[in-house]
Amino acid sequence: MGNFGKAKTAANQAPANARLELAAMAMESNKNLHETGNGGDKGSSEVVDVKHFHKVIDQWPPNSNRAAQNTFNFYGPPNEITPSRILWYNNGPWKRTIAFRDEVPHDFPEPHTDVLEQFIDYHVPAEKVGDVALLEGSIVIDRTKGEVSVHCDNEGANTLSLNMMHEIVTGKRTPEDARKFIAKEIVEYMMNRPAPYAENFQFELPVGEQWDPDNRVVQDEELMQAVENAKEQLKKEGKI
């Protein structure tokens, strides 16, 4: 067995009062979001200067550059940019799209590198998460946020994977059947033949937030009282 050290994090150094203050702020925000429904990732509506966009992707590897350029060609300038990633919000049917500079090798359904991640609002029931995981490793489920994303090298492959994810969740296909279908459909798409599952969503995308906030399990009275005291103090100081 290897020798693994216990790496310390900033959590180890957080003062006691800071821990309670953060809990108080978080609980107050939680209450407000439940009441208003105004939560989740809103992103930015501003767009990045086109010259800056090209300056950044000109430094990227060819596959990453192409994925970012293709997204730009269809959806226009992005909303946020860093040296290693570029983000579009609410571009077409997507909640957001991220083009990455750094590539990840992926051999399903054929060898390529993953550089383009795309998100939709979608609730995957807990009992279906394992089945979706069997489809492929590039699908990422965030039940709390009510999001599903997938990353590949092109939008057609991402669309195909999410169509298969939906059919697994709804019981139309097994993971094994879905993998076989992807192997056939992606060939049609890349050969520029009709491939509807890679070209368009075959289901109605959910409208609005698909959060799954789960259920409260902490009931410790001493902690709750300490947090309540911290909350009252923060209100007096005008911090919440």
Rank of each mutant, 00 (worst) to 15 (best):
N70F: 01
T71M: 07
F72P: 01
F72Y: 14
N73D: 15
N73V: 06
N73F: 06
F74H: 15
Y75T: 04
Y75K: 11
P77C: 09
P78E: 06
P78H: 09
N79H: 13
E80A: 12
E80Y: 07
I81L: 14
I81K: 10
I81D: 04
I81V: 14
P83I: 11
P83M: 05
P83Q: 13
P83V: 12
S84R: 12
S84P: 03
R85E: 15
I86W: 04
I86P: 08
N91I: 13
N91K: 13
G92I: 08
G92M: 10
P93A: 02
W94E: 03
W94T: 10
W94F: 15
K95H: 13
K95I: 05
R96C: 08
T97H: 11
I98W: 01
I98D: 02
A99R: 01
R101T: 02
D102F: 11
E103Q: 15
P105N: 09
D107F: 13
F108G: 01
F108R: 00
P109M: 05
P109V: 03
E110V: 12
E110R: 13
H112D: 15
D114L: 05
V115M: 02
L116Y: 04
E117G: 03
E117I: 02
Q118Y: 09
F119Y: 15
I120W: 06
